[in-house]
Amino acid sequence: MTAVIATSALVKRYGRLRAVDGVDLDVREGDVYGFLGANGSGKTTTVRMLLGLVLPTSGDVELLGQRMPRAARRVLPRVGALIEGPAHYGHLSGRENLALLDAAGRGGSWRTRSRRVRAALEQVGLGGVGRRPVKAYSLGMRQRLGLAGALLRRPELLVLDEPTNGLDPQGITEIRELLLDLHRGGTTVFLSSHLLAEVEQLCSRVGVLDRGRLVLQDQLATLTAPTGSTVVHTPVPERVRATLDGRVTSVDGQRVVVRGADPAEVNALLVGAGIPVTALALERPTLEHVVLAAAGTTSDRVEAQR
């Protein structure tokens, strides 16, 4: 599969601080890639280097198969980006802000530009307020407007840094559905976030950054695949331990983990022994457990919930 983002030994130093330390990103065509890390882990610095906004101290960056920042003029018109919150002219309307941005980008006739602006505003749920001055927008509305600006180019690659910042739960759901629609239409999405729940619901592939180092990179399905054990919920956990002697690996309240990847077989043994079972499922690690195992206690700032 074609690499859309590829970095090799990417480093960014600020004095003695290595903000990014030898990162090898591999984002492929068709990915919804979740770039996870605690606040201050180096995510935004990495994203800014990808887009040529910050020069790396050492290492290489390729975007859409071309070296950055050397190929920026050819590559960036094919990329939509929202980094560190959108910047807008507060006295202008959302529509006017997007019109200025579009005129500096794709160009075309006034009618064509107006149609693109209107479509982008409607995509992000701002169709009814596009004529209101941006200074009257809430933080969530400004975030939506920034995303609309990233969508003006109909990008092949969409690079987003904390795109749901400031949104209420309904807004988060709407943006999630929008990103999934864009992905189904062929857009590769690179999503930098510290919210595990957001990434778990959206992404097919994840990378985890910890203190500037990429400590994990793989398919989400692989990282959260069944462990080969079954989780049993029962009001009598000690009877499960006695019945399945040697197969119980942990007991936590009414939750019992049993070696064996066939829940039906485990259930038959327990029911046959007269043990009540309230729930049964294959054990799968959550993304939270995977991230904490890879990045250690510094990732306690990576949030499972908003």
Rank of each mutant, 00 (worst) to 15 (best):
S192T: 13
L167H: 14
E200P: 04
A148M: 07
A304K: 03
E29A: 15
T227Y: 04
L280C: 03
L282E: 07
A273I: 04
A104F: 15
R13E: 15
D31P: 02
A9H: 14
A225N: 07
H289W: 05
A150L: 15
T188F: 03
G185P: 03
R131P: 01
L280T: 10
G30L: 12
L36K: 08
A38F: 04
K12P: 00
A148W: 00
G207W: 12
E288A: 11
V291R: 06
L76I: 12
N165F: 05
A221E: 15
G105K: 08
I83K: 12
A150P: 09
A6G: 11
T222S: 14
G52R: 13
T224H: 05
T173D: 10
L209Q: 02
S93P: 13
D21Q: 00
A304S: 08
L209R: 00
L160M: 14
R247C: 02
L223I: 08
Y14I: 10
R241K: 10
V271H: 03
V290T: 04
V47I: 15
A9K: 12
T249S: 13
V117Y: 01
G260C: 09
R144T: 03
D210K: 01
I5E: 13
V75L: 07
P285Q: 06
L157E: 01
R301F: 06
L25H: 04
L82Q: 15
T164K: 06
G37Q: 00
R116C: 13
R106T: 09
V79D: 07
R106Y: 03
R132G: 05
G212N: 01
P133N: 15
K12W: 01
Q123N: 11
R301D: 13
G30P: 06
E29C: 10
L209V: 08
G105F: 07
T224L: 07
I5S: 09
T243S: 10
R74F: 06
V61S: 11
L53S: 11
G128L: 07
L158Y: 00
L92G: 12
L64D: 06
R78Y: 06
L147C: 11
L269Y: 01
S41G: 12
R16V: 08
L121A: 14
R73A: 14
L76Q: 05
G108C: 06
L269E: 15
V232E: 02
R239M: 10
R13T: 13
R154H: 13
Y89M: 06
A148F: 01
V271R: 09
F35K: 13
G185A: 15
A6I: 06
R259Y: 01
G15R: 02
A261W: 03
P235S: 06
A87G: 12
L216H: 12
V23M: 02
V32F: 13
L101P: 01
V129Y: 01
M68E: 11
A19Q: 02
L214M: 14
Y137C: 12
G296W: 07
